[in-house]
């Protein structure tokens, strides 16, 4: 009888202690710094040498971790100003570069790099390097040249390079749509429209909630931009002259109010009557952000 009681007491005490520990354990794990949460990722070359059989699995695991990590920050997305503080972009960039070194065919890496990393941080050249690395392996995939072309045309102003990429995407997909894209980029008006089209395509294909949220945010920004651009055009048509500033649009009733840039920037009018935003649609380049985010990986990507 005493023995039985002793056994009950033994397991009872230990189980209670275990349950008591669960809360603190969860709290501590949730409050870890971001790098630790994302996990320190070993050097890709070392991983490749140690587990050559599992390189694809390791690549997928790293991306899975990035996706889960990014998805876990979804509550910050409502205020993008907080996002840049919450998200550890350099760590994500390193993880993505490690993943493509392990498995250069992994489309998730390129997609995530393009959809989230590039825009938010504004490293277009780095992004194109990543994508062009992927093009050497996924040589059947039209999406990669499509992304590169968009970055070149929209962000880097390299229309000739963009046209080449769209031709390549057209050849690979067999769709005629790309052939016309390069031409339309030559006009400023078409640019915003195309960006919206591009984002809407991406959004339609997106399946992960966090990515969807990011894309939707961006789409909102571009729709705001288009609204202002349309107002500027309308102003010119009605009054026969360009507005001197965006205040003219509200003053003369073309717009009820200037839409807000969800990236925390401020829309303004350039000398040549184009609408720009101080944030450049990037979280790190946005107004008031002095923080410089370095997402360059330790090593450049090269074939091996």
């Amino acid at each position: 009888m005493m023995r039985r009681l002793g056994i009950f007491a033994f397991f009872g005490v230990l189980l209670t202690l275990y349950v008591q520990l669960l809360g603190p354990v969860r709290q501590v794990m949730e409050q870890r710094p971001f790098v630790e949460k994302l996990g320190l990722i070993p050097h890709p070359q070392a991983l490749k040498l140690l587990f050559p059989d599992f390189r694809a699995l390791l690549g997928a695991t790293i991306l899975g971790r990035v996706t889960l990590y990014f998805g876990g920050l979804v509550e910050h997305f409502d205020d993008p100003r907080l996002l840049v503080k919450a998200v550890d972009y350099p760590a994500m960039s390193r993880a993505i570069h490690t993943a493509v070194k392990l498995d250069p065919y992994n489309m998730d890496a390129y997609y995530f790099g393009q959809a989230v990393l590039v825009w938010d941080v504004g490293k277009y050249r780095l992004a194109n390097e990543l994508l062009e690395y992927g093009m050497r392996y996924r040589n059947w995939d039209w999406q990669l040249p499509f992304f590169v072309g968009f970055n070149k045309a929209y962000f880097l102003g390299d229309l000739e390079g963009a046209a080449k990429m769209y031709m390549r995407a057209g050849e690979l997909s067999g769709a005629a749509m790309f052939k016309t894209l390069a031409g339309r980029y030559l006009q400023e008006v078409g640019k915003t429209e195309m960006a919206i089209g591009y984002l809407e395509t991406q959004l339609a294909g997106a399946r992960i909630a966090s990515v969807k949220k990011v894309l939707r945010l961006r789409l909102t920004a571009f729709k705001a931009l288009r609204q202002i651009e349309e107002a500027v055009d309308g102003y010119r048509r009605r009054y026969g002259e360009w507005p001197l500033g965006l205040e003219d649009l509200t003053a003369r009733g073309m717009l009820a109010e200037i839409p807000e840039d969800p990236y925390g920037g401020r829309f303004y009018l350039t000398e040549d009557h184009r609408v720009r935003t101080t944030s450049k649609f990037s979280l790190t380049l946005g107004a008031g952000k002095k923080k410089k985010v370095d997402v360059t990986p330790e090593e450049t990507l090269r074939d091996d």
Partner: peptide, 8 residues
């Protein structure tokens, strides 16, 4: 969980 290559 994959964004673009579920089958892969």
């Amino acid at each position: 969980l994959s964004m673009r290559q579920v089958v892969s």
